[in-house]
Structure formats: structure tokens, C-alpha cells
Design a protein around this nucleic acid. Structure first.
Lengths: 214, 214
DNA sequence: CCGTTAATGTACGAACTAGTACGTTCACGG
DNA sequence: CCGTGAACGTACTAGTTCGTACATTAACGG
């Protein structure tokens, strides 16, 4: 019947249903945590039924893993399209930090999923097949910038790419992941645009001053 | 009967039972999260029964709040007994950072409880009565160090105590809270003694180089 | 030494939750 | 136009989990 495959008119659409479930599940898991999330609740917010969750994903745990893997894949994609090879080491690092800062702020679900996964001792991520592909995209850029910076005698020698990555991630993740207790205790809103801008440049300064010390 | 109140021989001991429940609950909540924790499981690991949890605390939620409040109280106590007034600003800040670093590493349950509480948007902590007493102990020391440092022309002016606190907390919390996904992805053990030492001094350098820049 | 009450133990229920058995409908090739 | 299988819906179950009614025992004052 004139194949409506390319149209949005199909009533039955494998991909659409899968994507719908995944999107709803991402919000539910990020919001409530793995144990707190309810399969029935996810199903209810979907345009389909619970039966389909089991049909396409197998169960709550596999659905959670699919959600986690998609979130990490997006981060990897964002990291890979980064091109800072043509910049001077200092500027390259500042830009990389700023882009990481922005990516995290643009993906609050991801931050929460990582926190949740750490609560569960990374047991799901450890068993994931995408695990092997995550380290390199995150470290490749930093490694090359550090090499150029050290070759030019600009950067100190006693820090490796993973240390730098940790400083960047710490700062970007903490201000978002812990913003609720921070807000409760200190009354400071981490999402305030002015403060956001201040922290964004602060992170760059922090890195450069440390790496170029003495 | 010769009041065995002060002895450990009592069979019925209000304080002992309460403390027992609280200790077991702390481990359970820190390990499984609020929704993941099981009241029956906590009761089973106690030397008393589930009935006593409801007798002394009222319910799962109040028990969790009691656990959270005790964890924060310990941090506050540790912060208050800190005396860095007699040190030069730079050394004072390095020492404060190192002590925070140590305290976090010595209290893994606290780190996890904070992560868990943030997953729940700090809804429990926000309603806590101890909330008002948490900000000052955390910031007082830093504020005084910064004032002395700025007065001596050593430190930059565009950073406040809360920003400094955030940098310290970010670093100390992240390396522990996110160590499972970090380990899974990069294969790096954050608890390795040599690396621990490296990061401990690294944090001090990071702060000082940034604050004394230019 | 005994009554009162704080402290404790047991058994149970109501509600929830992941997962499934079974039945139905749509799409598409022949 | 019809048979076949993929996609989907409904209703249910088995097991879990928080919380409580009810019974009991230890401590302590008088």
C-alpha cells in the first residue's frame, strides 16, 4: 500500500516505539534512580504499554542499561567532534574545558544517571559492551594538548591526561550533581547565569594557572 | 537494683538500641540508596527487631533523615575543631584542603549519602532542623583565610569563600563518589595510596596557584 | 514485692511491583 | 484478498515491602 514506511502516518512503528520508551525511561530513571523508577510509571507515560517494554528491552535492568548506554554514547559523540588541534595549548585546554562544562549543563539527565550508576558501584556499566569505546574519546584530546604544551615547555610534567580530565569533570559534575544539597545548605543557586559564567571561566583559569605554575 | 544504668550489662538499653539501629541503617542506606534500602534488611542486621525501628524512629523516612543528620553533624564537628588561624594564608589553605580531603576519605558513607540525597533533590535535608547550622562551620575558616590572604596582597579578589569551598569539595567528593564509573572506564583505582598522595598535594597546588595568579 | 510503664517480640495485612499468559490487530507478500 | 508473523493490548499473578495490631517482658518507684 504505497509503503508509508518513510511517513509518520504509520500506526505501528518499531523504531518510534523503541525511541519513545527510551526517552520516557531516561527521564524516569534519571529522576527516581534505578530502584526508585517504576516500570508501570514508565509505561503509563509512554504512548504504548508495559508489554512493549518487555517486548523490546527484556526487563527493567536491560532497559536501564539501554538508557545508560545511549547517554554515554551521546557524550562520546560530543567529545569526538571536538577539534582543538589548531589552537595553542593554553587556548585549546580552555576551550576543551568550556565545551565539557557546556555539555554537562546541557545534559542534566546524564549527570544524574552517572551518579545513580555510581551508587550501584557501576555494576551495569561494567558489563556494558560500549565500555571499551569510552576511554579514548575522553582522553585523546587532552593527551595531545598536554604533549604539545609540555614540548613547548609551557606545562608541568607531573600531571597526566587522566588527572586533568578528573579536575575538569570534578568541577563540571559537582556543581550540577550536588547542587541541591548546596542550595539547601548555602542558599546558592548554581544555575544562575552570572555565576555560571563566572565558574566557566574560573575552571579555565584553575587549569592553566596550575599547569603553567613556576 | 543497684542501677546498672552505667553498666553494659543491661538487657534493655534505649541508647544502645537506638545507636545499633542507626549504625546498621547508615550502612544500608549508604549502600543501597533510600528506595533500595529495605527496612526488613536493616532490622535483620540489628540485634533487635523491626518493631523497634518504628518505635524509636517512626518510619523508614524518619530513620533515613536521622542517618543523614548524624552524618552531617560529624562533618560539622570535624570542621569546627579545625584551627588554622596561626598559619600563613597559603599554608592554612593547603592544610584545610588536606584535612577536607582526609575527612572525606575517612567517611565513604557520608559521600554516598550526599549523592543519594542529591538524587532525591535534597528534599529530606531541606526539611531538617540541623540545616541552619551547616553553612557557617564549612565557610568560616575559608572566609578568614581568604581575608588575611587578600589583605596581604597574596590572593586574587574575584573569588569568594563558597567558590573555594566548591573547588575543594568537587575534587574530594568526585574522586570518591564517581570512582566506580571512573574505574570501569579508565581502569584507574582512585584509592591507590600513591595516587591518593599525588592528588592530595595536587589539590593544594591547584588552589594556591589559582588564588595567587599573576 | 508488686503495680505501672517503658521496651521488646511475633505475626500478619494491605498495597505495590516486576514480570507474564493469553488474546488481538495491523502490515505485507504472494 | 488472504495467510502469516510482527507488533501491540489486557488482565492477571507471585513475590515483596512498609507498616501495625497484639502479646509479652524487663525495670523501677513506692
Amino acid at each position: 500500500m504505497a509503503a508509508p514506511s518513510s511517513e509518520a502516518e504509520r500506526q505501528r512503528d518499531k523504531e518510534r516505539t523503541r525511541a519513545d520508551i527510551l526517552a520516557v525511561a531516561t527521564r524516569e530513571f534519571a529522576d527516581k534512580g534505578y530502584t526508585g523508577a517504576r516500570v508501570d510509571e514508565i509505561a503509563a507515560r509512554t504512548s504504548t504499554t508495559k508489554r512493549m517494554i518487555y517486548y523490546y528491552f527484556g526487563g527493567k535492568e536491560q532497559l536501564y542499561l539501554a538508557v545508560l548506554e545511549r547517554a554515554y554514547s551521546e557524550l562520546r559523540a560530543s567529545e569526538q567532534q571536538l577539534d582543538v588541534e589548531h589552537l595553542e595549548p593554553e587556548d585549546a585546554l580552555r576551550q576543551l574545558a568550556a565545551l565539557t562544562f557546556d555539555h554537562h549543563e546541557a545534559h542534566p539527565d546524564f549527570i544524574r544517571l552517572v551518579s545513580i550508576e555510581n551508587i550501584h558501584h557501576a555494576e551495569h556499566l561494567s558489563r556494558s559492551e560500549i565500555l571499551a569505546g569510552l576511554a579514548d574519546p575522553a582522553l585523546g584530546g587532552i593527551t595531545r594538548i598536554l604533549e604539545r604544551g609540555r614540548a613547548a615547555g609551557l606545562f608541568r610534567e607531573d600531571v597526566d591526561a587522566l588527572d586533568v580530565h578528573m579536575v575538569i569533570s570534578s568541577f563540571c559534575v559537582f556543581r550540577l550533581a550536588n547542587r541541591h544539597t548546596f542550595q539547601a545548605i548555602f542558599g546558592r543557586d548554581m544555575l544562575d547565569p552570572a555565576r555560571r559564567e563566572h565558574h566557566r571561566t574560573m575552571l579555565g583559569d584553575l587549569l592553566i594557572e596550575y599547569l603553567t605554575a613556576r
